[in-house]
Structures are given as C-alpha cells and as structure tokens.
Write a protein that binds this DNA or RNA. Structure first.
Length: 409
DNA sequence: TCTGGGGTCCTAGGACCC
DNA sequence: TCTGGGGTCCTAGGACCC
C-alpha cells in the first residue's frame, strides 16, 4: 500500500507576508533583512529575484544588482502568526502534519483520500484557501514519500503543483542531479562526482559496497535515495522530540577586543538563552561558547558540561566566562554565541534555600514583564550599555515560540 | 560597513569503568 | 607480564537544512 505525501513550501514567505501587509510593496522588488548592522538578505520577493537578489547577500551586494530594491526589516511575529494559522488549516485535512520550518510542511494524506477525493484536490483546496486568507502562494509536491514530495514541490515555483506518481519515480529521477535531494549538499555531491555519480539515476545504480565503504552507514541510504526510496514517517508536531538545544549568537556591529565588551555581550546572550530555556521549561548541563574572529575564517568553539542542570541566566553567564577564560583571543571578535544543550525538563521543585527562592521569583517576574512588553524591557543594569538589544533574528528556519509550541498573540 | 542566525545529526577519539 | 572488548560520557568538528 502506497503512502501519499504532500510537501508544501510557501513561496518567498517572509517577503510575501510583507507585501500582503503593506500594499505599497506589492509588485516591488522587496528584500527582508535583519535589524542588526551587518545583516544579509533573508528572503527576497520574486520581483527582486529577477534581478539576481539572493538569500545570503549583503545589503550592499543586493543594491548593486538591484538599485531600486526595497528593504524591510523582518518581523517574526507576523510570520509565526501566519505560519501557525496555515498549519491549522493543513490539520483540517489530516492530523499527520510535520512542520519542517516556518514555511514548509509535510502532510501524510494517505487516510484522507477517501474523505476528500484525492491528494490533488486537497492540494488545490489548500492553495486556494491560503491564497484567499493570506494572499500568498505556495508550491506543492505530491509523491509516495517525503523525499520525493519535497523534490516535487521544488520543481515548479512559484505557485506550482507537481505530482510524482509511483510508476514514474525511476524515470523522473534519471536525470535529476543528486544535490537536488534534501540531505545531499555541496560536499556530498562533490564526493559523489569523484565516483562519476552525478544524477540520482546513477546513484541508484551505484555499487552498494562501494558506497558503504566510502560513506559508512549512510552509503546504503544514499543508494536508496537515488532509487527514490524513503521510509521516513511524517511525524506530527506533538509527537516530535523535544528541542535539543537553545542558542543565540550575534554578529556585533563593530568588532570588539576588550574583555569588558565581550562580557557585556555574553551576559546579554546568556539572558536570551536563559529566558528561552525557561520559557520552554527546560534546563541543560552543557554550555557552549562560540567566537568568530575578525578575519571571519578563524573561530573558537568550546563547550563545557557542568555537574548540574541550569537555566538561570547568571548561571549560564558564569559558565560562559569560565569557557572564555580558556580561549586565547589574539584577534578582534566579530561574533559571539552561547548555547545550552543536554537538555531535560525542568522540575517544578522550589529551590532549597530562601535566597534562591527569592532569586527565582525575581527572575520569574522579570520574564513575565519581558514576555508581555517585549524582549529586554527589563534587563540587568550592565546590559544598558550595549548597543544591540537582542538580535531580532529572522530566518525561515527560525523557530521562536511558534512552530513547536505556537503562541498566538 | 562584504560575508546572519537557528537548528539537527553523524563521526572520531580520549577518559574511564566493568 | 601481556592483552581483551563492551559501554558511557565528553569534546571537537563537519555536513546539512531553512
């Protein structure tokens, strides 16, 4: 019995949402960017793409190829709100909805076909409703598994609908380059090319022993992918594993080199990480500090596992400082990052000592205010001197309070 | 003012224990 | 005196995704 899987990909999601919110932007080349000084293009509208504006370009580069480009600083709330409403819509057709990112999802509609007629009809209904409610288009792929559904949704953009029927899989894959497969990136494609494997067809026919020898346990998987075989299930959100790490990083407006400056940003990052961990209700025992130096290419990445699970900002900060002290800094610093991992659920137990109880209450009160009035409304005094007040990160892969645990405001 | 930010998974090697 | 193998935990680093 074949499964029937849909993969839905919102077209130029952030840019489309912005054009919908502000009619003056419609038909214009628009690029969504971050609010930090050294930001890059996160998403561009199709009008901008015509000029060659691409994700990852600096503002400067983008303006060179498209002088009339309009920049819009991204607004996460708009995107998570729209995204969660679209997901709700998808769930009307099957409970088996796996959210892959803020603008992509898989639907296993195998058991919904009778009710709604066909996968194609579900796709048309969803497209029409998303366009009607939000004014944005999407590309949909229909196939017997996730791998092929994702491949299919990529084939026609924007506003496409592509079906790969089980009988056509071999024929379709024959000429498709291996790195069109989700999971095969540039590096892997280069390795395969050395074995004269360029297309999925070739990958599917490759010698399994050779692949296993070269790529270990993944070798077999790659061969299967080349044949269009993928047994991975669509995993609905609520069954999804808990988040595994919580981290924040920021490229500083200006490179810094004094310990004092570094500590200020570390405190800020620790507070961002701690607050999000507390919101998720998790504690962690591994803290990672990441530094990118001024030359962009060199970096330091150090982690330390503590004996206790923590989630308070000052504890994270303390651990970050300890790690910092073990890193030799002989260049200016361009980027700083702090991550908490080895997570587990926070027990609701009250701390043993009165002073700890007091601190926890204070932190809870601060969190409450910040959750209501926006990040960094209430902050540690030493944060007042930093220029950046939190990175207003925006990226289609960004999973804020949305997606996993949607919080509609 | 050239080059963001948030994740996951896999591998390899060392320490340590049984 | 010499030699095992399994398991877990930890760090570091790479590939890949949006």
């Amino acid at each position: 019995m074949h499964r029937t899987i849909l993969h839905i990909d919102m077209n130029a999601f952030f840019a489309s949402v912005e054009q919908q919110a502000n009619p003056a932007l419609r038909g214009m080349p628009v690029a969504v960017i971050g609010s930090n000084g050294r930001t890059v293009i996160t998403t561009s509208s199709y009008e901008a793409r015509k000029f060659g504006v691409k994700t990852g370009m600096s503002k400067w580069e983008a303006l060179r190829v498209c002088p009339q480009l309009v920049f819009v600083v991204g607004d996460n709330r708009k995107y998570t709100y729209t995204s969660s409403r679209i997901v709700e819509m998808m769930k009307e057709y099957t409970p088996m909805v796996e959210v892959f990112s803020i603008d992509e999802a898989w639907l296993d509609v195998t058991h919904s076909l009778q009710l709604f007629g066909s996968a194609e009809r579900i796709a048309y209904l969803l497209k029409a409703r998303i366009r009607q409610s939000f004014g944005i288009t999407c590309s949909i792929g229909i196939a017997p598994n996730k791998l092929l559904a994702k491949l299919a949704s990529d084939m026609q953009k924007p506003d496409g609908l592509t079906i790969i029927k089980p009988d056509d899989v071999t024929k379709v894959l024959e000429t498709i380059p291996v790195n069109d497969l989700c999971g095969v990136g540039k590096k892997m494609a280069r390795h395969l090319a050395l074995l004269s494997i360029i297309t999925c067809g070739q990958l599917g026919r490759a010698n399994e022993e050779l692949l296993t020898k070269r790529f270990g346990i993944m070798g077999k998987r790659y061969k299967e992918w080349g044949q269009g075989i993928d047994h991975s299930p669509v995993v609905p959100q609520d069954e999804e594993d808990e988040v595994k790490s919580v981290g924040h990083s920021m490229t500083l407006r200006k490179d810094i080199d004094t310990r004092e400056d570094i500590l200020k940003y570390l405190l800020q990052l620790s507070e961002m990480v701690g607050r999000r961990a507390r919101r998720y209700g998790v504690t962690g025992k591994t803290v990672t500090l990441y530094i990118r130096f001024a030359d962009y290419f060199s970096s330091a990445h150090k982690q330390e596992t503590l004996s206790d699970y923590i989630c308070q900002s000052d504890e994270i900060y303390k651990a970050a400082i300890t790690i910092l002290d073990g890193i030799e800094i002989c260049q200016k610093v361009r980027l700083l990052g702090v991550k908490l991992s080895s997570l587990r659920h926070h027990s609701q137990q009250l701390p043993l000592f009165p002073e700890d109880q007091k601190k926890e209450k204070m932190v809870q009160a601060m969190d409450a205010v910040n959750n209501r009035l926006g990040d960094f409304t209430l902050i540690y005094a030493s944060l007042l001197q930093t220029e950046e007040k939190g990175s207003h990160v925006i990226s289609p892969a960004w999973r804020p309070e949305g997606i996993r645990n949607v919080e509609v405001q």
